[in-house]
């Protein structure tokens, strides 16, 4: 299997992952560490894009790896680690949203307001525009709009957009992650994109 720029930013391959999993299953702690480091960016990105809140996303992303660690004994090495982790992430995000819903609170992403972290640093839910040409501020603004619209989508719609248009998964991978048929992915994705466009048009 060749390098996949979305799933393997370190330039590794699925074969490397399989080897790491094998080592981790055999008790190699450093191998598990490596798996975390390799995939944390993707897992965090999925969580952030589904939940819209950085702190929640970090918390859930950690939980993903905790669950993966506990279940690693049963992971089939022929499967793709990244897809496996993303499906765990999707599950946990859904649970987290329901957790908040039960407490009658919605995770509100104030994307325009800076979020103060423990160290007093200021972070935004969306990538901060680097100081520079005005255009970069404009594109960050555009990204904020998109994120805000994304969070208004239904869970199903948002899942489709995040997995396909933000994370770059194939239809087959999405079917595997979301646990549905290929045809379902096709139609859900189509509807989700129409919805998103309607939201974006309405926001301008």
């Amino acid at each position: 299997m060749g390098a996949d720029p979305v799933s393997y930013p370190a330039g590794g391959t699925a074969g490397d992952d399989a080897a790491l999993v094998a080592r981790a299953q055999g008790g190699d702690g450093a191998a598990f560490d490596l798996l975390v480091r390799r995939h944390q960016q993707i897992v965090f990105a999925v969580a952030l894009r589904m939940l819209g809140d950085r702190d929640e996303a970090e918390d859930v992303a950690q939980d993903v790896f905790v669950r993966a660690y506990r279940a690693i004994g049963s992971f089939r090495r022929e499967a793709k680690v990244s897809t496996w982790l993303v499906s765990i992430a999707m599950n946990l995000c859904r649970n987290r949203r329901r957790w908040w819903a039960r407490r009658k609170r919605v995770i509100v992403a104030s994307l325009d307001e800076p979020v103060e972290t423990e160290k007093g640093a200021v972070e935004h839910a969306v990538a901060d525009p680097a100081p520079g040409p005005r255009h970069q501020a404009e594109s960050a603004e555009r990204e904020r709009h998109i994120m805000a619209a994304l969070l208004q989508l239904s869970e199903v719609d948002r899942t489709m957009i995040v997995l396909r248009d933000l994370q770059g998964h194939s239809y087959e991978e999405i079917a595997e992650i979301a646990g549905c048929q290929l045809g379902t992915v096709k139609s859900r994705l189509s509807r989700a994109r129409v919805q998103l466009r309607a939201l974006l048009d309405g926001m301008l």
């Binding site: 950690q62 790896f65 905790v66 998109i146 994109r193």
Partner: peptide, 26 residues
Amino acid sequence: LQRMLGTLKMMEQPHAPDLLPGVRRK
């Protein structure tokens, strides 16, 4: 539609914190 999808595709990946310490702690 192509434009919207083009923009989505090019969106910056969010900067992920190092999760490992938190994972170990948990």
